[in-house]
Computed example of a mutant assay.
Amino acid sequence: MERFIDVTPEVRLWAEERGALDAPPLLLIMGAQTSGLGWPDELVDALAVRHRVIRYDHRDTGRSSWAFDEAPYALTELAHDATAVLDAFGIARAHVVGMSMGGMLTQLLIADHPKRMLSATLFGTSALSTAPYVRPDGTRVPPEELPGIAPHVLELWARPVEDHGLEAELDRRVEHWRALGGDELPFDAEAARDLERGIVEHTGHHTAGTAHARAGTADMLRTEQLAATDVPTLVVAAPADPLFPPPHPHHLAQAIRGARLKEIPGMGHALPHEVLAPLAAAILEHTDRH
């Protein structure tokens, strides 16, 4: 079932739920500039066997309001959008799964709204913490010295985004997913194109969004809150992630009190078919515990 949620006079969010209404709720929070349809149906359906699964379009993606130029916002406001979605569905507490920027927003929920959380699952993201990463040999590494984004991704992001029509935009998005997916699993260009064509049809246009890259990033750190949380947290490690490569997941698991770490071999910063079954299994094993 689909619905629209009015968050502010300027912002309306699109959301969808699947699964039994009396099943434990599970909220999916996608990454920057990506529609909720970035969560593949195969994964959503696998989770909906045991959960009431909700996915939604961030502001300036999909069918939600594209209003950044008229009403700029900080990234922290996107975490408030997540709680507004839960409110709209009448959900007091939920399991929350966040990918990339969605993983950062989930950390904000862990820190600022722990009573709304049954559990958290994070991947493809970095810790909102100044705590050092402690290597197995005891060496302490400041977060700013952890590996950065791969040069080939930075080069891709530096290119100007111009509108040369639908097919050219789909080409650009497929190239982007190829770069994000890493080099350990085969890349299915046709599947990536089908996903993005579906997102374009869902959105109603093929404009490339830039709002999340321009949104304010102040007040994101939650070092103390993450270190003291009681929210059961699973960190999924993606060894081929070119944005937040190891040891970022290990640092994240150290920064969040009590977090567990689960690696999915070959996984990059994307959701190809090969990782969906092990990812669903990891999420469901975690939510079953809590």
Rank of each mutant, 00 (worst) to 15 (best):
H80I: 06
A158R: 15
I110Y: 01
L180Q: 02
R178E: 11
D6I: 09
K115L: 14
A32Y: 02
P24Q: 09
A23C: 07
L154V: 13
D288S: 10
W177H: 10
S64Q: 11
S65R: 02
G98D: 02
M267P: 03
F123D: 05
V96G: 02
D87G: 10
M104Y: 04
Q225N: 11
A238L: 12
L109F: 10
V49K: 13
T223P: 05
S35H: 03
P151W: 05
L261Y: 05
E145R: 14
D188A: 10
G62R: 00
L43W: 03
D183M: 10
L37W: 04
A208V: 15
R116D: 00
I5R: 02
V161K: 06
A255F: 08
G38H: 05
D241W: 01
M104G: 07
A277P: 11
Y73Q: 03
A191M: 08
A46N: 13
H206D: 05
T83P: 03
V44K: 04
D219P: 12
V49P: 00
G165N: 09
F4E: 12
T130Y: 14
E167W: 01
G268Y: 02
V134E: 06
K115N: 13
G268T: 08
Y133G: 02
A240L: 10
P246F: 01
D81W: 00
A240Y: 03
R222M: 10
H269C: 04
E201Q: 13
L276Q: 11
V174G: 00
P142E: 01
E196I: 05
W157Q: 13
R18D: 12
G124D: 01
H51P: 08
F4V: 08
P72T: 07
Q225R: 15
K115M: 14
A238E: 03
G216H: 12
P249H: 06
R63N: 07
L271G: 02
V7W: 03
P245C: 09
V235S: 00
D219S: 15
P40H: 09
A158V: 07
T229K: 00
W66C: 04
G62E: 00
K115A: 15
I283R: 02
A32K: 05
D163H: 07
E190M: 11
A208L: 15
A15P: 09
A74F: 01
H80G: 08
D288L: 15
D69I: 08
R3Y: 00
D188K: 03
D69R: 15
P247I: 05
R178N: 09
R116I: 04
V236E: 03
L284C: 10
H164W: 06
A67M: 11
R172M: 01
A67F: 10
D230F: 11
G38L: 09
M220P: 05
M1T: 13
V96K: 01
E42T: 15
A158E: 07
V53R: 02
F68Y: 10
